[in-house]
Amino acid sequence: MTHQRVPQQAPMIPAVKPVRDEGYGIDADFVIYRLEEAGATLLALPGTGWSTRLRSSSLEMVRSALESYGWSETVVRPAVPSAEKISRMDEALGWIPLIPVDRYVLRRVVGARSLVHPVTDRHLYPWRRLGKALGADHKAIQRWHGQGIALIVQALKAIA
């Protein structure tokens, strides 16, 4: 009976696409801009999709009739992002796993700060709110965010 040698698997490294820096250098400002753009794109995506079940309120004629009588409140929704924006979002959000797993607090801070409302351009989690949620001073949260961004920049420069 012969034994076949099974090749060892490489350690799990997050799959990161090549960075498109659009002619700019990879630095902290670039990474923050791209993460905030990705967060705004993520929040602009529709929360629900079409279902296979027919609902009477999903018909355009019924919906317009209900809206014309003021039976529903108007909600300002951002435009659905383009396919290019969604691709850029996937690329940028793929950078967060470049922060080591043992630094999970930095991952949380960087991920939370990347969420920017697509209409108002305001952060969903200001520094003080993050500090309260994590039980830390807002200045420490800002410092941790900077450390997380620096780790991402360092990893992206090593890839590029």
Rank of each mutant, 00 (worst) to 15 (best):
P7D: 14
Q8D: 13
Q9T: 09
P11Q: 08
A15F: 12
V16N: 00
V16G: 00
P18V: 08
V19T: 15
D21I: 00
G23A: 13
G23K: 11
A28R: 11
D29P: 00
F30D: 01
V31P: 05
V31F: 06
V31Q: 06
I32Q: 13
R34G: 05
E36A: 03
E37P: 00
G39D: 05
T41D: 01
T41P: 01
G49T: 14
W50A: 10
S51Y: 05
R53M: 11
L54R: 13
S57H: 06
S57T: 10
L59N: 07
V62T: 09
R63Y: 00
S64F: 13
L66G: 07
L66F: 11
S72Q: 14
E73L: 15
T74H: 12
T74S: 09
V75I: 15
R77S: 13
P78K: 09
P78D: 12
A79P: 00
P81L: 02
S82W: 08
S82L: 07
A83E: 15
A83M: 15
E84Q: 15
K85A: 15
S87R: 14
D90P: 00
E91K: 04
L93R: 01
W95R: 01
W95Q: 02
I96N: 03
P97D: 06
L98G: 06
L98V: 07
I99M: 14
I99G: 13
V101I: 08
V101H: 07
V101R: 10
V105N: 03
V105H: 04
L106D: 14
V109L: 05
V109Q: 04
V110M: 04
V110R: 01
A112Q: 08
A112D: 08
A112K: 12
